[in-house]
Design a protein around this nucleic acid. Sequence first.
DNA 1: CTGAAAGCGCTAACAC
DNA 2: GTGTTAGCGCTTTCAG
Lengths: 362, 362
Amino acid sequence: MESSSASRYTTVADVARLAQVSKAQAARALGGYGAVSDEVRSRVLAAAETLQYHPNELARSMNTGRSKTIGVVVGDIENPYFSLAMRGIYDTSKAGGFDVILINTGEDLATEIDAVNVLLDKRVDGMIVAPVTRSSSTHLNRVVDSGRPVVLLDRKLPSLPVDSVVAEMRQVSYEAARHLLDEGHTRVGYISSLDVGGVEFTLDLDLGTNPVTERLAGIRRAFDEAGVALPTDLIRLGGGKQHSIGDLVQALVTGPDPATAIVASDSVIALEALAELQRAGVRIPDDVSFLMFDELPWAGLMTPPITVVAQPVYDQGVAAAAILLRRIGGDRSEPEHLALPSRLIRRESVAPVGSAIVGASA
Amino acid sequence: MESSSASRYTTVADVARLAQVSKAQAARALGGYGAVSDEVRSRVLAAAETLQYHPNELARSMNTGRSKTIGVVVGDIENPYFSLAMRGIYDTSKAGGFDVILINTGEDLATEIDAVNVLLDKRVDGMIVAPVTRSSSTHLNRVVDSGRPVVLLDRKLPSLPVDSVVAEMRQVSYEAARHLLDEGHTRVGYISSLDVGGVEFTLDLDLGTNPVTERLAGIRRAFDEAGVALPTDLIRLGGGKQHSIGDLVQALVTGPDPATAIVASDSVIALEALAELQRAGVRIPDDVSFLMFDELPWAGLMTPPITVVAQPVYDQGVAAAAILLRRIGGDRSEPEHLALPSRLIRRESVAPVGSAIVGASA
DNA sequence: CTGAAAGCGCTAACAC
DNA sequence: GTGTTAGCGCTTTCAG
């Protein structure tokens, strides 16, 4: 029946007083460190109980220099990729006794730089960053200099000697392209939201190190091996930013030499592309074949079921967190670069080119 | 070209020394409070720059008692509902200068209690909680007692005098049920993951205050008004926990008097239900009509497009954060209970009952 | 084992 | 305006 009024937490001092011991002893009993007699410990714990004592983690962190908190910086938490990876990070961190501070950058570099600084200032014990594409690494150097571990998610920064966890993309993309080629598709469109500042794609354009670069490399190899020229005119970057996905799709399926297959670089793009195709009355796979990166529950339920490249997203989160925790624990070994296996799931959205006629006559 | 070695951050003391001023003056200049001459300020700022000074937010928080951080407790960040709401919370908090600590409870009460305590111990300035269904409010009382504001998301706790933000569900559910009834459906199945401990649903079962209760209330009213008995045997709770969604769906569409329409209480359930229906060869809407709560990009792209109840998820997040920030700012007015409008989006997954025959003969 | 006292890095009185 | 002196709540020497 205390009066309501807020403020003033009970501190170790309060507990110590009630338990009739020194502040230091109370703190030891409460914090579970140092030497304390059973007698004292129980008295202190009892006092803490009646006083409803809860430690001030801020004060504790200040002394120990460790906050039992990790920071996570992602581009867009609403994107299923990140929310699932986040779940993996979360589960693993929690199991290790760490809390998670989440920062969303909206895929903006300035925000990312800010985010990293904020986390550092809050003294997180380490962080996981999914860097915006084409960012440099200067802001992450500050983290490295601070001595706190970082692990990169979904991206590798060659200039930065830190751990990274990505999904294997080159090989699986090669397979995907082979599949398309096998079905007779040589006019394959590729839509990505990778921001390259609005320039057109060319073979010698440096996209930096990121999943898109890997995918394109795999696809290119398949085309090269097949002796087919990669249709660079159908590779469209900057989707959603410089250009609307709808317009991009529209452009791919019309024109004199249209794409016979479309590859969506992620599920968000796929959804918009699918909507546009439906709006335009373009049928899958009769008029155009469709393949997307990322497996989601709805992909197999569409009509037709969508062929996808599935990457182990949750596991990427788990792996990133596991490595980070190991580093926080003191592991000073060489940076590790994990590439988790992805796989192609063939469903029915990819069909032989020209099957529109077949379909119509069937 | 400093040597690598970690540790030891530069502090105000370091900056003060270099700038040849007192620690207090340096702190004032750095923190942007109190009175400082331009002369001193620039000297301090310059020193801070060369020393790469970054404030220790922990220390700052300890003195001010404010951490500029809010905590968010959700059931499952992987669920699109939460990740989108989180985005709303995030955007709003950030605009107000607050960071966000995310805690995921996995819809587990013990974890939720823990989460709330952790946040309190970390001295967050306030928190947003989407309480697990059917939880009591004792753990949240501690927050209220601490004097820090909480706002409830997607759930209202009558016993707790705090703000809440939910989506209006009773009216829109009434409309949805009306729609179903108008199409001739009286055998309407309802699948929810609401955990009621495995008991069967009956009309007098107390489900507590939560969206499901509201939905059922709205549906019931529509049935009552139409003079049709609510098919309580087709209302299945505990989906995903006590029973697999697939089994539940299977049970609804088979048996002597099967459901002619199925309502999925959220998108996760809908996806599993849809998969099961497809597996079982049950066609929508020919064999069974389908309606789901929550609008997602893929819903309209399915074949047929799914009729949904859309709730303003992002806006709920925004509203919750806005109220919280106002409270943190000192607003002591009466608790506010916001119910944002939802709406029924009619597409093609709901058709007149018995349209299977019509469809077959067409 | 226990207690007194000295900080962690910062802000907040309080004097000058 | 500026500097000095206390703390915030906890951990950590350092003596006993």
